[in-house]
């Protein structure tokens, strides 16, 4: 069965009294959402708190039953994106779409991998992404780090897929230019 149909099936099951169905949905998305949040907030504790809050908010949205849910995955990510923005708003910090702490953590963890060069490459990637505008950074990360389709990104951000495709194309072009420049210097 198509993944989204399966997700909607699970939502129907939970509304029919099978809470374990929501557990299955949680199992399917918890790691992805945790990664999505971690990339953006950095600290493990904040990522854990926010991820738990996102699933709770998803359940609260589902139980209201006010609107037909077309795409469950996009809904969870939209709730996640809003929760992260709220988190930044409350802390008064600027939203960066990529936390340096989180990236450093990734660089430190790569010791299991076989490539010695990988750490340097990862640092270079971070430097390149950092030069992108926050909006472009968000698009690139959603597409490549969170493996979301253009249609899903459009649904999460509440925009037209065509506009997202164009914006993503431009963001990648900019990233390419930054990397080219990095190589030259």
């Amino acid at each position: 069965m198509h993944s989204n149909n399966r997700d909607r099936f699970l939502l129907e099951a939970v509304l029919a009294g099978d809470e374990e169905a929501f557990g299955r949905l949680y199992d399917k998305y918890v790691v992805k959402i945790y990664r999505f949040v971690s990339f953006r907030v950095g600290s493990k504790e904040s990522a854990e708190d926010l991820t738990a809050e996102i699933f709770l908010k998803t359940w609260q949205y589902v139980k209201q039953g006010s609107r037909q849910i077309e795409n469950v995955k996009a809904l969870i990510y939209r709730i996640a994106a809003n929760a992260i923005i709220d988190h930044y708003r409350q802390s008064g910090n600027e939203y960066l779409a990529l936390s340096e702490d989180c990236w450093n953590q990734i660089v430190d963890q790569t010791s299991l991998s076989d490539e010695a060069q990988k750490k340097d490459d990862l640092r270079q990637v971070y430097q390149a992404i950092k030069f992108l505008s926050p909006a472009d950074r968000e698009l690139v990360l959603m597409r490549y780090s969170n493996d979301l389709s253009v249609k899903e990104i459009a649904e999460i951000l509440g925009k037209n897929p065509g506009a997202i495709r164009t914006a993503l194309h431009r963001a990648l072009k900019t990233l390419k230019a930054i990397i080219k420049n990095q190589v030259k210097t």
Binding site: V31, C102, K118, L122, V125, Y144, S145
Partner: peptide
């Protein structure tokens, strides 16, 4: 692009 993809899988709860 490959590294951005891989970096995502390095973070686990």
């Amino acid at each position: 692009k490959k590294f951005i993809r891989q970096a995502g899988s390095e973070i686990n709860p």
